[in-house]
Design a protein around this nucleic acid. Structure first.
Lengths: 148, 148
DNA sequence: ATATTATTGAAATTGATTTTCATTTTCGGA
DNA sequence: TCCGAAAATGAAAATCAATTTCAATAATAT
């Protein structure tokens, strides 16, 4: 798991980009357990340790990281994008979203019960796509909301 | 399949709402094969037959229909919402999205190869959620884009 | 240490969507 | 059939997440 001290510099320079303090701080937040944070939430979190950061920089950095596949971006329908570190250990986990309060919960990787690879092979052949990823999400009411 | 002539009036009055020409025209477009249309695309299509329609009305009507479960709303990450008629025959079909050009294709209902109900029961029990829906989407390159 | 240039922060701008408000339309009741 | 209450409309105004612009700053190769 990449965390504090990881060679982010090498990663950026590998992309032909520079390592900067804002970028490092953003990655710190992303790898410190932040889940499904909006850009603004990430900004607010980073700002606590690095007050000079700009929201624009957060957006730009996130976009770079998404393009590079280091961060995953989700749209759950509430008007703002959600980001999370694309942790290899948790690759292809799914989400459960409460339709009422908007809470988002990670659930385990379902590869054990669903043959995604098989489905992907079938669809690829049938539709002519080269599929390289998938996303499964469930909607419903969370424990709190369903008891209201 | 609900289409031209269906008793939309009864449906709306059942919700305590009124049947209006704009609402009927929007439903006409939605039930005429329109897939993954944005609000603006629906507006442009409706306008061809009913030039006085307003974009605002399209948004409002779509929201009413989404809340009622008659229309499904998707966010595929391109900044605008997509809508489609929630056809019972096609319930829970999945989507395949081209990461390059943005093309969205319906794929068949995968209930035959994936035990969604079983997964839902397991997650419901484990997370305390009352899950009532799911959405599976695949990302990759479409036939055209992968050959570039 | 210096020069080049990538990157930054914040103001300005954009675009999808929502709110506001005067006007129009719907439809139940007489 | 007509009327009135109020739902619904269309378009201008407003909102908000995100992007662009630009002067200033920071990174880093030499």
């Amino acid at each position: 798991m990449r965390g504090p001290g990881f060679g982010w510099g090498r990663m950026f320079r590998g992309w032909g980009r520079r390592m900067t303090v804002p970028r490092r701080e953003i990655l710190e937040v992303l790898t410190s357990g932040a889940k499904h944070f909006s850009a603004e939430e990430i900004y607010l979190e980073v700002r606590r340790k690095y007050p000079g950061i700009g929201l624009t920089t957060v957006y730009r950095t996130l976009e770079i990281l998404v393009q590079a596949g280091v961060v995953s971006k989700f749209n759950f329908g509430d008007g703002r994008a959600r980001y999370e570190f694309a942790d290899t250990d948790k690759k292809n986990h799914c989400h459960v979203i409460c339709s009422n309060c908007g809470r988002i919960i990670d659930c385990e990787n379902l590869s054990g019960e669903v043959d995604f690879e098989g489905v992907i092979r079938k669809l690829s052949k049938k539709l002519g796509f080269k599929i390289n990823g998938y996303h499964l999400r469930f909607y419903g009411l969370c424990e709190e909301c369903k008891n209201k």
